[in-house]
Amino acid sequence: MVTLFVVSIVIFVAVNLLPGDFAEAILGQGATPESVAKIREDLGLDQGMIVRYFQWFGGMVTLDLGTSFAQLNFANSLGGAGTVTVADQIAPRLANTMFLATVTACIAVPLAVTLGILAALYRNTAFDRAANIFTLSSISSPEFFMAYVLILFLAVLNPIFPSLSNIFDGMPFSERLEKSMLPALTLTLVVTAHMMRMTRAAIINLLASPYIEMARLKGLSPMRVIVKHALPNALAPIINVIALNLAYLITGVVVVEVVFVYPGIGQLFVDSVKIRDIPVVQACCLIFAAAYILLNLTADILSILSNPRLRHPK
């Protein structure tokens, strides 16, 4: 909670350091100083930064994310058909992003851990090297490049999945899943390498420990030694890396969303920054921060649960 508070200050200050403001952005080059001042006054932008921070923060605490500047303006000019709050605007986008992140995690995490275990088992063999080269090259190329490669192979040459992921509310689940497949696969390629290499390294790190030697001397098969004896003790670092990557899936997917026209929170965020729609930008930032904190907290709790020493003190 304290962390979130500190983060909220940082976000607020950072966003306000952006050059220009909503009034200038919306009115364009021909704006008269009077009209700029008018809009600023309407939106409360003429007040001091500290006052504005506490107005915003106060709303935050009561779960009122504020009103989007862009929607406000739009609604007013059409005759005030009611205002759209930031929450209304973010909620569906966030849900979409979570959906994509969940689909990706369901593919990437099992894949990465399995590959990591196999790479540890067959370490320094052709399989290990191939897995490493493949995952590393996919993480080293830019995301949009991987996205276009996938579109080329899975949408253009072999039309398996649609190349556009313009999902909308009320779409049936299966269709939604199908449309999200390409962005999910792209993201899988991006996050797998990190998790796989951590799994492999964490396991191999333990292979020199006496209890692994003991397991081998009990005549257990190499697979069992790794899955049953090394993996449970390697969970803590693996869980942490997984959490970090899941957080990335929520916060860092702008490029992939743009390529596939996927209506996620990343796109909204970028658009809002462009027009200086400050309430939306701040709310997005705060959600990203909360996601990071929450996932890392979960990782810490899971690490403790995976360690009998911490679960059962003497």
Binding site: S209, Y211, E213, M214, H229, P232, N233, N307, P308, R309
Partner: peptide, 13 residues
């Protein structure tokens, strides 16, 4: 095999 340090040779998990 019985190892020198049972504390290290039993799997903590």
């Amino acid at each position: 095999y019985v190892a020198q340090s049972a504390a290290a040779s039993f799997n903590p998990a």
